[in-house]
Amino acid sequence: MNETNRNKSRSGEVLIQEVNNTEVPYGCLSVWFLGQESVIIKGGGVTVYVDPFVSEFEGRSYPAPIRPEHITGADLCLITHEHIDHMDPATLSVMVRNNPSMQMVAPAWCREQLLEEAGVKEDKLADAETAVWRSPREGIRIQAIPAAHEQLEQNSQGFHRYVGYLMELNGVILYHAGDTVIYKGLLEKVRQHNVDLAMLPINGRDYFRTSRDIIGNMDYREAAEFAYAAGFETVIPLHYDLFAGNAENPGYFADYLYRHFPEQKFHIMARAERFVYVSPRAFLG
Rank of each mutant, 00 (worst) to 15 (best):
N2F: 13
T4D: 13
T4A: 15
N5Y: 07
N7Y: 09
G12R: 03
V14E: 03
I16P: 06
I16K: 00
Q17A: 14
E18F: 06
E18Y: 04
N20S: 09
N21V: 03
E23S: 11
P25H: 00
Y26Q: 11
G27P: 08
C28I: 00
C28V: 00
S30W: 05
F33W: 11
L34N: 01
G35L: 10
E37N: 13
V39A: 04
V46I: 15
T47R: 10
Y49F: 14
V50W: 07
R67L: 12
P68T: 02
E69G: 09
E69A: 09
G73S: 08
A74P: 09
D75R: 05
D75K: 05
D75T: 01
C77Q: 09
C77P: 08
T80S: 14
I84K: 13
I84H: 06
I84C: 05
M87Q: 07
D88V: 08
A90L: 14
A90T: 08
T91G: 10
S93N: 04
M95P: 01
P100I: 02
P100F: 05
S101H: 12
M104S: 00
V105I: 14
P107D: 01
A108G: 06
A108C: 11
Q113Y: 08
L115G: 01
E117D: 12
E117I: 02
V120L: 12
E122I: 04
K124I: 00
A126S: 15
A131E: 10
V132K: 11
W133L: 11
R134Y: 01
R134S: 14
P136M: 06
R137F: 10
A144I: 01
A147I: 03
A147K: 03
H149V: 07
E153T: 12
Q154L: 12
S156F: 09
Q157E: 13
Q157R: 12
H160Y: 15
Y162G: 00
Y162C: 10
V172R: 07
L174E: 02
H176Q: 11
H176G: 01
H176M: 14
H176N: 10
D179A: 14
T180A: 05
T180G: 01
G185R: 05
L187A: 11
L187R: 10
L187H: 04
V190H: 02
R191G: 00
Q192C: 06
H193F: 15
N194S: 12
N194W: 01
L197H: 03
L197E: 00
G204F: 08
R205S: 11
D206Y: 06
D206R: 04
Y207G: 05
F208D: 08
F208T: 05
R212F: 13
R212E: 13
I214G: 05
G216M: 08
N217G: 02
D219L: 13
R221M: 14
R221P: 02
A223R: 12
E225L: 10
F226I: 09
A227C: 11
Y228F: 15
A230I: 03
E233Y: 03
V235R: 09
I236W: 08
P237Y: 10
L238S: 03
H239D: 07
D241F: 03
G245W: 12
E248F: 08
N249I: 11
P250Q: 04
P250T: 02
Y258R: 15
H260Y: 09
F261E: 03
P262K: 00
E263P: 03
K265R: 15
F266S: 05
F266I: 04
H267Y: 14
I268K: 07
M269G: 00
A272C: 10
R274P: 09
R281I: 13
